[in-house]
Design a protein around this nucleic acid. Structure first.
Lengths: 158, 158
DNA sequence: AAGCATTAGTTTATATATAAACTAAAAAAT
DNA sequence: ATTTTTTAGTTTATATATAAACTAATGCTT
């Protein structure tokens, strides 16, 4: 009776995926810090605001897009506002809501960072040809897209 | 002049990779918290200690394996020791060094958690056949393995 | 052996993240 | 119209992470 040798297991795939992704993320974060005094979290906020164009986003919408808590958003936005990269305005329709948008300074800095960021990512992913990009995309979409809904597991799910 | 439409770009691949990986990680972390009052960080520590068998690991070696700072290790280990899951012993050869290993209770809990963890990962990755596992593994190894060395970028790298 | 440099780990200050309790405004129900 | 419930965001307590300054022991040099 020969023990079957499996070179690929879900656990191994997952560990490799997690390790490589974390390493790339740390590398990008470290580069943002060294070159722009920026973190990847704050960069992601600026990125979401940039995509939102002139209108900006409400605090809650930002939190939802970035998969972070409202409380975290409060903190991070207060820093970005203090640094002058983001404008904070009360919503005209709803007195509870806050609208955030890029300041001119924020837009300038973001464009500069985005260009550098694109180069870093290119240089990390340049070993992948178009075929491999498609394969990677396909594989990732096979992995339980319902995880992106943000629902929490409960004590008795299996 | 028609603008070329590229369905795959490194930036898109990277965003998908980061988003899916973070979502899976959050899901696993949430399940560990709900079912075992455990975080993924502490689980990773127990996992490294389990792999190290009887001998355990030094604080610095743990930090290196898990790609975290020494200071973080100090904190996390102090919690695991307080909870009785990990034993902390002075190294017999070097009075500066600390050796950590799983307690009996830690080993029991880890085995239980590892079995549940394996099931969760299976259920997330079960859409991938062996072929796709191999493809994923191959793709991930193409991505700058030197990032795993843990060196920091300097101000003037490009 | 004494002095210096390195190494192992801790401490402190700070950033980033969450959950839970809270405040205020808006929306829904009566 | 008043009460109740829901929604938007903040605050507080805590966990997790880092970098930089620090302490103590070890190893190296002379």
């Amino acid at each position: 009776m020969v023990k079957e040798i499996r070179e690929t297991s879900p656990i191994k795939s997952w560990l490799t995926l997690l390790t490589m992704t974390s390493a790339i993320k740390k590398d990008v974060d470290a580069r943002l810090r060294v070159q722009f005094d920026m973190s990847i979290s704050r960069f992601d906020v600026l990125s979401a605001l940039d995509r939102s164009k002139r209108n900006g986003l409400r605090a809650g919408e930002l939190a939802r897009q970035l998969f972070v808590s409202d409380g975290n958003t409060t903190q991070v936005m207060s820093r970005l506002v203090k640094e002058g990269l983001v404008l904070r305005r009360p919503d005209s329709k709803d007195a509870r809501a806050i609208n955030y948008s890029l300041s001119d300074e924020g837009k300038l800095l973001f464009d500069e960072m985005a260009a550098a960021h694109e180069q870093w990512i290119h240089s990390i992913f340049n070993e992948l040809n178009d075929q491999k990009h498609r394969e990677l995309g396909e594989i990732l979409t096979l992995l339980k897209p319902e995880l992106l809904s943000g629902s929490k597991p409960s004590k008795d799910d299996k």
